[in-house]
Each structure stands twice: as structure tokens, then as C-alpha cells.
Design a protein around this nucleic acid. Structure first.
Lengths: 136, 136
DNA sequence: ATAATTGCAAATGCTTTGCTTGTGA
DNA sequence: TCACAAGCAAAGCATTTGCAATTAT
């Protein structure tokens, strides 16, 4: 769990620079889904010279290497999370912006079924629920 | 079906300018999901003086009035469609970009169920399937 | 050694906006 | 009439890129 990102980089022949190591570290330790700006801020606390351009480049590189996942939720900037966990979808709290991950096998199966019925092989999907907390 | 957009505008007190009428007309007659640039091109064939700024403003206005729906599919610009039909989701052909609409009540129900289980009232959702055509 | 990576600033692509002129109800 | 809308060009925002300097292997 800890800094598996560095290990993945080595496996994929991704050159490990100081900047990439820091970005990997910060993302490994992040429990949330930071956007590039936020990630840049966190990384800057460890090394104030890292440029936002490098963060953009690295995040893209990591995404292409299957190390990070990018999400474009409605009305927000692109957010990133570690791609280690098993597949899941997201519920976004429309009031706080909080993001909750969930898995639902029934929905997954139905998506596949719908695709096939339409004559398609399901390659990817995006499912986002937007909701507001029910007060008790 | 024909130009219901104009009627909706009147009902909502949206002032009907020539430009808006044309944009309404073009969207009414569109079977696909054009982006702003494409819409601007189509509208320009009818009136070459309409600016892209007006198209952007109108499309936003219509969206807020519930007349058009905006979609930000992965890797593309924002696309619009008439919001008249009943709710539906989309399957995007990853090879051709073609967009197929579908409805699946079971998935809808499960989404609601998932939200509630997490303590949320489902307000909105986004479901997109990305697939490639199965050749026979 | 040397091909890849960084930082910077400039460029990009889509979208919005300020301002002046034009116009629908 | 007159508040609202259009056209234009400039600004905004997130992201990408060219280039010279730096660095990992």
C-alpha cells in the first residue's frame, strides 16, 4: 500500500526523478481526490521548486501508466486518485464536494448487458451519482 | 416535436430574438449531439452574422431553462441535445464517436438504492458507457 | 555520455465577459 | 421606450508546449 507507485514506475521503466518521487509519495498518502492545483500545493510543501507544469506532466504520465486515475466530475477541475484499488464508482456530495466510493456488482452487470444488447462490447464506463446528505 | 423550443421560451419568458430562434430551430432539427462549434457552423448557414459568443450564451441560457442538455463526454468538447425526450443515458462508440441513447429502469432503481444506502438523496447522475461495435 | 526531464514563460483551446450598439415586447 | 441581447475583441482558466538548462541511468 505504502509507496507502491515508485515500484510501479520501475516496473514500467518510468524514470524516477525527485519530482516524480514526491508526487508519487503525496498521491500515495492522499485519501481524497486532489486536483492538480491542490496536488501542486501539497508537493510544494516538500519541495517548493516543483513547477505546476511538471505536476501536469507527471499526472498525465502516471495516468497513462495506469498508476493514477483521472476524474472529471461535473463542474469541477480534473481530480486524481491512485489507481490501485479495485474498480469503483463515485457518489459526489453536491453540497460539500465530498466524494464517496462505492461498488455495485449488479449495476456493473447491467451495464454490460445493455451494451451487448446494443451490439457493443463494453470497454469503459463512467458512473457518477450526485446527491445530498439525508439528515436524520 | 417540431419547434417546441420556441414555445418553451415563451412559457419561460425567454425573449425570442432572431438568433435564438435560429439556434432553437437548428437544435430542434438536429438528430445528433453537436458541440458549440458545430452548432455555430450550422446556424451560420442560415445567418452568417451570428457570433460564437451568442451561441455560447444561448446554449447556456437554454440549458438553464431546461431546454437543452449539456454533456461532457470523455475526451470531447461539450455537446448539446434537446432536453425534450424522457431521461436517458448514453453509449459512446469509442471508434466513431457515435452516440446511442438508452434507458434502463433497473439501473436507475439501483442508483437510487445505492445512494440511499450511503445516506444520500439522489439528485442527479451521469452514466456513460464506452464501447466498440461487435462485428457479426 | 546522452536521452529524458525540468522550469519557465508563452501558447493553446474552450468559454466567458466588458462594452458599445442594436432590438424585442 | 428601455431593459435586455448581440457582436466584437479582450480576458479567463485549465492545460500543454518550446526551449535552454539540468539530471538520471
Amino acid at each position: 500500500m505504502n509507496n507502491s507507485i515508485e515500484i510501479k514506475c520501475q516496473k514500467q521503466g518510468v524514470r524516477l526523478t525527485d519530482q516524480r518521487k514526491l508526487i508519487a509519495k503525496v498521491m500515495s498518502e492522499s485519501e481524497d481526490h486532489p486536483d492538480v492545483d491542490e496536488l501542486h500545493k501539497r508537493v510544494n510543501k516538500l519541495d517548493s521548486k516543483i513547477s505546476i507544469a511538471t505536476v501536469y506532466r507527471t499526472v498525465k504520465l502516471f495516468e497513462e501508466a495506469g498508476i493514477l486515475s483521472k476524474h472529471d466530475f461535473k463542474g469541477t477541475k480534473a481530480r486524481y486518485e491512485q489507481a490501485t484499488h479495485e474498480h469503483h464508482d463515485h457518489l459526489i456530495d453536491i453540497n460539500t464536494g465530498e466524494i464517496i466510493e462505492f461498488v455495485n456488482e449488479d449495476i456493473e452487470k447491467l451495464q454490460k448487458k445493455v451494451s451487448e444488447k446494443l451490439g457493443y462490447k463494453l470497454v469503459d464506463h463512467r458512473l457518477e451519482l450526485y446527491g445530498s446528505k439525508i439528515k436524520k
